[in-house]
Computed example of a mutant assay.
Amino acid sequence: MSIDLSGKTALVTGSTQGIGLAIAAGLAAAGARVGVNGRSNRSVARAMEAIRADLPDADLVAVAADVTRDDGVAKALAVLPAVDILINNLGIFGAQPALEIDDAEWRRYFEVNVLTAVRLTRSYLPGMVGAGWGRVQYIASDSAVVIPTEMIHYGVSKTALLAVSRGFAKEAKGTGVTVNSIIAGPTHTGGVEDFVYQLVDKDLEWADAQRQFMKDHRPQSLLERLIEPTEIANMVTYLASPLASATTGAAVRVDGGYVDAILP
């Protein structure tokens, strides 16, 4: 299959590192003009340099804006008034005992992980519908389905994203716009490395720490390893393409078989 996103403009939130950076690179490699988003000019510039190291001709747009805030969304819209592809990747996570998560922390996770995506969808979806073509995706998590005891607040926020995705897919029905969520499994990023070391012996070498983490905390994984960000990006790029025109309202799994279910 040949994925060609030439002529399409994408915005990937939280794309200065990890999964978001891999997604931005994947879309750029397919020919899309990609808005690289982070909170600072420095982080965005660094991410764009990393992408261009492998893709010198990548068509990138700097979107330095804190999209968790209304003024940040306005700033992003000023840079990219319309997009064809919106990837709601931005999110926060961290381990915390369930009974120690206070109301403020619950609100913070809902605000960042859920409402940010809702605001951006509300901003960009009408333009896609008007154009008769568009792609909206939400990067959810296996934690949306298999709620982890060490971060219930994160899991609940990702469960909410699955509902948000399905709801907006219904809003966009029959318009040529597809809306989907990605259930990403345990993925190897810098932030996840820090998270792993919250749960296993900090003196272990990374290879041993990863094995211990998967054995003790993610034993359901059929891969028995962390997923690489590019593996998530491959699915996102496909779903963003015309090839995925019949896939909408779906929660597509890139979880390494972590969720123990036949259906998504």
Rank of each mutant, 00 (worst) to 15 (best):
T159E: 09
V12Q: 01
R42M: 06
T247K: 08
L11Y: 15
F168E: 10
D216M: 05
Q210L: 13
W133G: 09
V196P: 10
G256L: 04
R52N: 03
S165N: 06
I101H: 04
T248V: 04
G14L: 05
I3N: 06
A261E: 11
A50Q: 14
G127H: 13
E205V: 11
V63A: 03
L162V: 14
V146S: 12
F110M: 15
A29M: 00
R135K: 12
I23A: 05
R166V: 07
T116W: 08
V192Y: 11
I51H: 06
I3M: 01
T13G: 06
A95N: 12
V179P: 06
A22T: 02
D260T: 15
R225A: 14
E205Y: 08
A104Q: 13
A24P: 08
V164N: 02
L77N: 12
E224C: 09
V79Y: 09
A53Y: 01
I19D: 12
T13Q: 05
Y154W: 01
I147E: 11
R39C: 00
A78D: 08
F195S: 01
L263H: 13
G130M: 08
A74V: 11
I23T: 01
S241W: 05
G176M: 07
D203K: 14
S40K: 14
V67Q: 08
V44W: 07
G185K: 08
V177I: 11
L90P: 11
L55Q: 07
P242I: 01
V164S: 03
A30V: 07
M151Y: 01
T159P: 06
S181Q: 01
I139N: 04
H217K: 14
V129G: 00
H153I: 03
S245C: 09
V73P: 00
Y238L: 11
E205T: 10
N234P: 00
P81G: 07
G134W: 12
E49R: 04
R33G: 02
T248E: 06
I262R: 13
R69D: 04
N234G: 08
V252G: 11
D84P: 10
S165D: 10
Y109A: 03
V200G: 06
L162P: 12
P97K: 14
A24Q: 07
T230L: 14
L77V: 15
E100D: 15
H188D: 15
S2W: 10
V254A: 11
L90D: 14
D260Y: 03
V63W: 02
S43D: 15
A244V: 00
S123I: 00
I3W: 02
R135F: 09
S6M: 05
G176P: 08
L86G: 08
V34D: 04
A10N: 07
L99I: 11
S6C: 10
L80Y: 12
L125K: 02
Y109F: 13
P219L: 02
A50H: 09
V112P: 06
E105Q: 15
D194L: 13
